[in-house]
Each structure stands twice: as structure tokens, then as C-alpha cells.
Design a protein around this nucleic acid. Structure first.
Lengths: 99, 99
DNA sequence: CTGATGGTTAAGCACTTGCTTAAGTATCCA
DNA sequence: TGGATACTTAAGCAAGTGCTTAACCATCAG
């Protein structure tokens, strides 16, 4: 899933989708690459669970899957929390030592 | 930076570091790969800004850089926020429509 | 029906990544 | 001093990634 976010073009796509659903064409518009390339990025995003899409007529509409984003966010938050907790304990220890 | 977190071995290293500083040897211990491979992962983590390390004697000690982690977390949080804000507006609109 | 639109598939290619082994270098300890 | 410890560098390689072009399929509008 972080692998999906590792690519700049894909982050641009996620950014676009965070402002609302979009078609493949619309996702491709700000990107300087061929449509097949965009399709491949979209596939990566879908496989990571970050994006869901469905086709109506000849138009495929994509939308963000906030639950997946939250999961990624949570992992980082947890590691960071562990680290700051450690710092707090160290601080408390130094404080205690001072007395 | 997400590229740095994209690899499982590197996430294992970050996880270890979230529980406190560690030497290269300690980081390598849970990983089933050669030491040079670990060094290469460490280099990626340092270049991403997620980890800082310094060498004393013959031992290199690594520690997490929480600011970088927070930055990654923030980006995700922002995209997610944009999306949920959209949902809220939609909900408000539907509610209004109902009256 | 026919052309334009929106998407899809397949093949190929340059470049990057994630390892490996082999051969160092620089401490530290007895 | 001499061996063990803790990294470090360099070279090489198999697999994966991010594109491309060419060709194709399925709507939709006129």
C-alpha cells in the first residue's frame, strides 16, 4: 500500500480523487503520460485498496477508499506514538534523577 | 519518502526503531538477509529523512526522526479529510433536499 | 451506419530495486 | 600485537517498475 503511494503520479491521482470522484480521462489530464500508463497506475491503486472504480457505459468512474487511507495513516501514527512515548519516559526519568 | 516505507524490511526496521534507538546489528537481527543489504535499506531510510544515525567507535546507532514520519502522516490525513469533507457536504445537501 | 470518444490489451524496453558474494577498513579487547 | 567484532565498499545480477507504441473494443451522437 505504501508502494502504491510511493509514486508521484499516483499521489497526484489520489490528490485529485480526494476532491471528489473522477473519470480515467480526468485523472489523466494533469499527467504528462499516455492513457495506458494511467490505467496501469490506476490498477496499482485499486490493488492496494486505496481506490475503487466502476464502469457505466463507456466511462469508468473512480473514487477514494478512505478506510484504506486511514489504515496507512494509523500505522505511521502508531510508530510515531511509540517513539514519543519513549521520549516521555526518558524525560520523566531525567526529571526524577534531578531530585 | 513513501518509497522508503514501501519495503517490508524497511518497515520492520522503522518498527524496531519506534521502540528505541538501535545499532545496525540489532536492526539486522530479525531480518533474513546479509548485513550489506541492511546497510542499503538504512541508506534509503536516511535519504528519506525518516532515520538519522551516527557512528561512535565502530558502532553506528540509528534513531527515528519523528518529524519526517509526521509529515507522511499529515499528507494522508489531508487527503482523507478532503474526501470526508466532500461526503459531509453531500450529506448536508441531501438533508436540505429532504425538506 | 459511421465517426468520435473513452477505455483496454499486449508487447517491448530502459531503468531501478533488492539482493548477493568477496574483499576491505576501523575499532576494541585480552 | 593479534584476533574478533562491527561495519563498509564494490561489483554483479535477477526481478520488478514505469513507461511507450500499436492495435483493438465498446459506447454514444448525429
Amino acid at each position: 500500500m505504501y508502494a502504491a503511494l510511493a509514486d508521484g503520479s499516483r499521489r497526484t491521482m489520489v490528490d485529485r480523487l480526494s476532491r471528489g470522484p473522477a473519470t480515467v480521462k480526468q485523472l489523466a489530464e494533469p499527467l504528462t503520460m499516455s492513457l495506458p500508463a494511467v490505467l496501469q497506475h490506476l490498477r496499482v491503486l485499486e490493488e492496494s485498496g486505496l481506490v475503487r472504480s466502476e464502469k457505466v457505459g463507456r466511462v469508468r468512474t473512480c473514487r477514494l477508499e478512505p478506510a484504506a487511507l486511514q489504515q496507512a495513516e494509523q500505522w505511521i501514527a502508531d510508530r510515531r506514538a511509540g517513539w514519543t512515548a519513549r521520549l516521555d519516559r526518558l524525560e520523566a526519568f531525567l526529571e526524577e534523577d534531578e531530585q
